[in-house]
């Protein structure tokens, strides 16, 4: 949980608007995420969750808006930001090893011409050890399972030693062991004072994983401390008819959670 006196938010979004062809994808996003929280971005399909992250990282053009990372523009804070894209965004038949993918996280630091050397190799091995993938360092990435691929991606972001991490659906299609391992690592990062921002799709686990929450459906439906945001009327507003299963009492909504 963020210390209450922490003045500067880790991420501050002002008036962000994104459209794709003639569809508004994000509308007037106004948001401050405090430093040192584990924040979840939740919403129905097509709510613009991934687009929000991508437009913050300037991967998707936005029509208007201002994004500040720890008080400065993203472009000047690039080195303080780590990104874990969706696993399906790359071709895993690429001829390379897990260790090599992790070392790619250091290319930004190396600049234009320096090649990764022994030091980079060691840092990448440390990151692989953190995600429990030491034995797979020299494995072809095409031979890794979905969960192992996701851990490699996480390790690639970890070597960046960033202060703010963006993760796009890191739990999608991974096994339970990997999900537990990922959440452990993210909690450790938060406890070190880093800010972790996760696009998440599983409502069952929201209240156990996150201490800060953004409920998104093109607009900001609700944002703030998880227990204040994760309320039935907010969810109804975000999900509309898609959430007909829910009962009236918050306590009945999600009886089971995978990880405690």
């Amino acid at each position: 949980m963020a210390p209450p006196g922490n003045a500067e938010p880790a991420l501050s979004i002002h008036n962000l608007t994104v459209s794709y062809h003639n569809q508004p994808v994000l509308w007037d996003i106004e948001l401050d995420i405090p430093a040192g929280v584990m924040a979840g971005i939740v919403g129905p399909n097509g709510a613009g969750k991934s687009t929000l992250i991508k437009s913050l990282l300037e991967l998707v053009p936005s029509l208007s808006g201002e994004v500040r990372v720890h008080g400065k523009s993203y472009a000047s804070q690039r080195k303080r930001v780590g990104y874990v894209p969706q696993r399906s965004s790359v071709d895993w038949d690429f001829p390379t090893t897990a260790l090599d993918v992790v070392m790619m996280g250091l290319y930004g630091r190396l600049g234009w011409f320096r090649r990764p050397g022994r030091r980079e190799r060691r840092e990448a091995m440390e990151a692989l050890a953190m995600v429990g993938m030491t034995d797979f360092a020299e494995r072809q990435i095409s031979q890794l399972s979905g969960g192992q691929q996701q851990r490699v991606f996480l390790a690639r972001a970890l070597v960046q030693q960033a202060d703010v991490y963006f993760l796009d659906e890191p739990m999608a299609g991974v096994d339970a062991t990997t999900e537990r391992a990922i959440i452990e690592i993210l909690r450790r990062l938060r406890d070190q004072g880093k800010t972790v921002i996760v696009v998440h799709h599983d409502l069952q686990t929201v209240s156990t994983y996150f201490d800060w929450l953004l409920l998104l459906n093109v607009r900001v439906i609700a944002a703030g401390n998880a227990q204040d945001v994760f309320k039935i009327d907010h969810l109804r507003k975000a999900y509309g008819g898609q959430i007909a299963l829910l009962g009236d009492h918050d306590s009945l909504m999600f009886p089971a959670s995978k990880v405690t």
């Binding site: 991508k54 990282l57 300037e58 991967l59 690039r78 930001v81 990104y83 894209p85 965004s89 790359v90 071709d91 690429f94 390379t96 993918v101 790619m104 290319y107 930004g108 190396l110 234009w112 011409f113 090649r115 990764p116 690639r156």
Partner: peptide
């Protein structure tokens, strides 16, 4: 050969390369 790193990362994961400032 000079831009080996860049060529490799952009080919594997162009979006990630952009977040690193390439």
């Amino acid at each position: 050969a000079a831009f080996w790193k860049q060529a490799k990362l952009v080919t594997f994961d162009a979006e990630y390369a952009r977040t690193l400032g390439m």
